[in-house]
């Protein structure tokens, strides 16, 4: 996307972003920025349509099997979902604020905010993977999981010196044919888990991709690549990250707040 004009500035004090020259086929850097952003919005449109398939599956299956969705959703704890919503919203803010800092050439703050955004992404994945996916799929809880005390009567295993505790019969809430949970009252519940894991799994994959882009921005920013006249990469990474947030804003109530 970018050509760094190093001919004029090697060894000088001029930061990279000032030495940036737009591609020679553009009339101006502004035009290049606009075209990049438009291209990125076109890409985001395809991303929305990817998730549209999942939302469509959700709508149609919930329409046909409403009880299965009610039962399945009752296994989710809205507090984890709410916490993760908060984490993503805050990370969206720090991302937007980071772009603002690079626009104002406040490099240190810009980098710090990128790092916080990345940390929020890790927090999101830990909550999702360690406190939601792992127990539901396998019955293994981490020892400080706040839900664990309710189930200790049925403890039947430990791993890593007690760091993980296995609860007999809790796991097996897996998608489709992998379902092996014994206490479901609804014959269609495996369908709900299919939708749940597809939707949140593909969303989590987008969180990972977004975090990789943020990490890339961070390391480029350390070299001084972004500033008031050139921050296209940070801007588009931000757009991607906000889209991840946007999808979660709809997934959260649809998955966790059904009653």
């Amino acid at each position: 996307m970018s050509t760094l004009d190093t001919r004029s500035g090697i060894g000088s004090d001029v930061p990279l972003w000032k030495r940036y020259a737009a591609g020679h086929h553009w009339r101006s850097a502004d035009e290049e920025f606009d075209a990049c952003t438009l291209g990125f919005w076109l890409f985001l449109a395809t991303e929305v349509l990817l998730f549209a398939g999942l939302f469509c599956a959700y709508a149609m299956l919930r329409y046909k099997y409403p009880e299965a969705f009610l039962n399945g959703s009752s296994h989710l704890d809205w507090r984890w979902g709410c916490l993760n919503t908060g984490v993503l919203l805050i990370s969206s803010y720090t991302m937007a604020a980071s772009i603002r800092m690079f626009q104002l050439d406040r490099q240190a703050m810009g980098k710090l905010l990128l790092a916080i955004t990345f940390a929020c992404g890790i927090g999101f994945l830990i909550i999702k993977g360690l406190f939601e996916y792992t127990p539901k799929l396998s019955g293994w809880f981490i020892s400080f999981d706040p839900a664990l005390p309710h189930y200790l009567d049925f403890k039947n295993g430990e791993a890593l010196g007690g760091l993980f505790v296995h609860i007999d019969g809790y796991g097996g809430k897996a998608p489709g044919q992998f379902f092996s949970y014994a206490f479901s009252d609804n014959p269609f519940e495996p369908l709900w888990w299919s939708v749940y894991y597809c939707a949140t799994g593909i969303h989590a994959l987008h969180v990972v991709i977004g975090m990789s882009l943020i990490a890339w921005c961070f390391f480029r920013a350390r070299k001084g690549a972004y500033g008031p006249t050139h921050y296209t990469m940070v801007e588009n990474t931000g757009l991607y990250w906000h889209l991840v947030d946007l999808i979660w804003i709809f997934l959260f109530p649809l998955l966790y707040l059904i009653h």
Partner: peptide, 18 residues
């Protein structure tokens, strides 16, 4: 035990939908 487990897993941390 099945009944006990079922009760614990349905009413543990999340209020059961029904």
């Amino acid at each position: 035990k099945f009944a006990k487990m079922k009760a614990a897993f349905s009413h543990g941390h999340a209020e059961h939908a029904h």
